[in-house]
């Protein structure tokens, strides 16, 4: 069975670190978008985002003597931004990427960074430049199954332990949307389903709010946190007609994450699963 060796070796490598899976999945989504959904393959945009994120992370790695493996975190943030953030010029992309990565090191409370880097980067690019935007419709609603299966599969396999945030968020939003669209407004069920199966929403639910570094540490607090994001998403979308409401909801709710952490402590998260505990490096990993 020697021919299987490269495959098993790859799997072992992937399983070492949840970020390996994230990178593979996010890059896969990007390829799917370009090849299957016929997005414009804006290579310049991807190069700017990835390059800037990795470059800024490298600066901090040198400055703070962090392990080089933390570049993976920057790659995850960059890929997430490639999938969501669009811009008319490179300035907005560079700003977004710099803010995203720098915020991990500059905006810290109790030794943790407060905002999801990709989320803050997108918000900064959109708000500060007026040159960037998010296209919530770019995934359509037909790829729902695709996302659900792969994302759920990846979550289960990796046991990142943040599936609770995705489920609490989607479940709350599904119930609220059901009350609003079907029971109150009187639309048919497929309107409800079409709203919920939006690809951007699912990507957000499975890949953005599950970042173990910026979700509350205790499970109970995480569920409260996710429900709050869902409620705010619902309110912003229906009553203020804000497109891409989840992005803004997450940004706002992230500000109370330190409070939730203070209310109930939980264990700090570590990316690597294979290596034995190394208390000396424990704190360092949190930085990444």
């Amino acid at each position: 069975m020697r021919f299987l060796q490269p495959i098993t070796a790859t799997l072992v490598f992937l399983k070492q670190d949840a970020r390996h899976f994230q990178i593979v999945f996010l890059a896969g989504f990007l390829l799917f978008g370009i090849l299957q959904l016929h997005w414009d393959a804006e290579l310049t945009r991807y190069v700017f985002l990835l390059g800037t994120c990795l470059g800024v992370q490298a600066c901090f790695i040198r400055w703070k003597s962090l392990p080089w493996s933390s570049l993976k975190s920057a790659a995850v943030s960059a890929l997430g931004m490639c999938l969501l953030l669009k811009a008319a010029g490179p300035g907005a992309l560079v700003l977004g990427a710099v803010v995203a990565i720098a915020s991990k090191f500059m905006l810290r409370v109790n030794g943790r960074h407060v905002f999801n880097p990709g989320n803050l980067g997108i918000a900064a690019a959109v708000l500060l430049t007026g040159d960037a935007w998010v296209s919530p419709g770019q995934w359509g609603s037909g790829v729902a199954l695709f996302f659900l299966v792969t994302a759920a599969g990846c979550m289960v396999v990796l046991r990142v332990g943040r599936i609770d945030t995705s489920l609490a968020f989607l479940g709350t939003l599904a119930v609220l949307e059901y009350f609003r669209t079907v029971l109150y407004l009187g639309w048919e069920m497929d309107v409800w389903l079409h709203r919920l199966s939006n690809g951007s929403l699912l990507l957000f639910a499975f890949f953005m709010i599950t970042d173990p570094m910026t979700t509350p540490r205790a499970q109970r607090m995480r569920v409260i946190w996710s429900v709050a994001i869902a409620v705010l998403t619902f309110l912003l979308g229906w009553f203020f007609w804000i497109n891409s409401a989840p992005i803004w909801a997450l940004l706002i709710i992230s500000t109370i994450t330190p409070i939730l952490d203070h209310l109930q402590h939980g264990d700090a998260f570590r990316w690597n699963t294979e290596r034995p505990e190394q208390p000396a490096h424990h704190e360092q990993h949190q930085l990444t």
């Binding site: 190069v47 390059g51 470059g55 490298a58 040198r62 703070k64 003597s65």
Partner: peptide
């Protein structure tokens, strides 16, 4: 820009 992003980290001295 990419060249700068590669060069600058190399120039930074660790604290």
């Amino acid at each position: 820009w990419i060249a700068a992003l590669i060069l600058v980290p190399c120039l930074i001295r660790p604290a």
